[in-house]
């Protein structure tokens, strides 16, 4: 679905790790160090990471099959979920028990798998929301416009600058809900940049994005690195991972099973096993119910995994809305 034909191959950052590339390998300059992080959902260990370090100033891809615990790890690292055990630091600060909003204030911002553009705010308002330390966000000083007018103007200038870079400046007064799925992804990323983060964590930035926009999204991610930010992203599209990632971490069944630079990791037996080993015989048509067929134990397993993946969307729509289908939602909002 992605294409890299139009641009030159990006410059890869190398020499990130110390010693052999193996799960949990030490990095030269880690921005996140996590130890012994576990999280259980109803008896199932969703995340069980002994040790992992995320390199600074590089693009790190977190890959793995559905239900591998990637999003859960994201949630744990960003304070959106609490682990059962473990410690982890961001930029030298321990993050245990720190609420998500404080983590974000420290310079570690994230996006979500299901795009969370704030639909009934305009594109510009979405952007302004990303700026930190706003005087006007205090309930008392908000009442007196002179206190925050100047800052607001500055924030707006900055927002327009970033919007122009993401080619969304013409849409600044549109409701975010009126954007396409890909544009919303772009907006979410642009919004995250408003806070001048040190680490940007992108959860499936390419999911549901129109192929025409893929290239521009890739370029934006590469730009983050050029501007000195570190990037950690979850992705399924191996093509894209190979193209832009400097380092790849592979998860399966909650554990980290492999680490290394993209070329090496893709050859790793553990990775191939993680992706194909468990479900290679399963006909996806049977899983989704489109093709009637006998549900084998493997189908049941896969269903259970999908269940874990989409479990969060319980009761999110009045009924049986398909929440992962971005395009369907777009139709609704128009």
């Amino acid at each position: 679905m992605s294409s890299n034909s139009s641009s030159q191959s990006p410059v890869k950052t190398t020499g990130l790790h110390i010693g052999d590339a193996a799960p949990g390998v030490a990095k030269v300059d880690p921005i996140i160090i996590a130890d012994n992080v576990t999280r259980t959902f109803g008896g199932l260990k969703a995340v069980d990471v002994e040790h992992v370090e995320i390199p600074r100033g590089a693009i790190t891809a977190l890959i793995g099959p559905n239900g591998a615990g990637k999003t859960t790890l994201f949630n744990l690292l960003t304070g959106f979920d609490k682990p059962d055990t473990g410690t982890w630091t961001f930029d030298g600060t321990r993050l245990n028990g720190i609420p998500a909003f404080r983590v974000a204030r420290m310079g570690q911002v994230r996006t979500f798998q299901l795009t969370k553009a704030l639909g009934l705010l305009t594109v510009l308002e979405n952007m302004k929301l990303g700026a930190q330390k706003q005087t006007g966000e205090n309930v008392f000083s908000s009442l007196l416009k002179p206190l925050w007018r100047k800052q607001e103007v500055e924030i707006e200038e900055r927002a327009m600058e970033i919007l122009a870079r993401f080619k969304l400046d013409t849409k600044k007064d549109d409701f975010a809900a009126s954007l396409s799925g890909g544009q919303r992804k772009l907006l979410e990323m642009a919004r995250a940049l408003m806070s001048s983060p040190k680490l940007v964590m992108l959860d499936e930035p390419m999911a549901g994005v129109n192929p025409a926009l893929t290239q521009s999204l890739l370029d934006h991610i590469l730009n983050l690195k050029t501007e000195g930010m570190s990037v950690l992203f979850v992705e399924h599209d191996m093509h894209m991972v190979r193209h832009i990632a400097d380092w790849v971490i592979v998860m399966a069944e909650g554990r980290i099973v492999a680490e290394g630079d993209p070329e090496t990791v893709m050859q790793d037996a553990a990775v191939i096993d993680a992706y194909l080993g468990s479900h290679q015989d399963v006909d996806l048509g049977v899983v989704t119910g489109r093709i009637s067929g006998e549900k084998t134990a493997e189908v049941e397993d896969l269903l259970a995994e999908i269940d874990a993946e989409v479990g969060l969307t319980d009761s999110s729509a009045y009924i049986a809305d398909t929440p992962t289908d971005d395009t369907a939602k777009e139709e609704d909002t128009k």
Partner: peptide, 16 residues
């Protein structure tokens, strides 16, 4: 099953 996960139940052929 529907209470558990409406989308999945619908996908697996239950007449919701």
């Amino acid at each position: 099953a529907i209470s558990d996960n409406p989308s999945l139940a619908a996908a697996s052929g239950i007449d919701v």
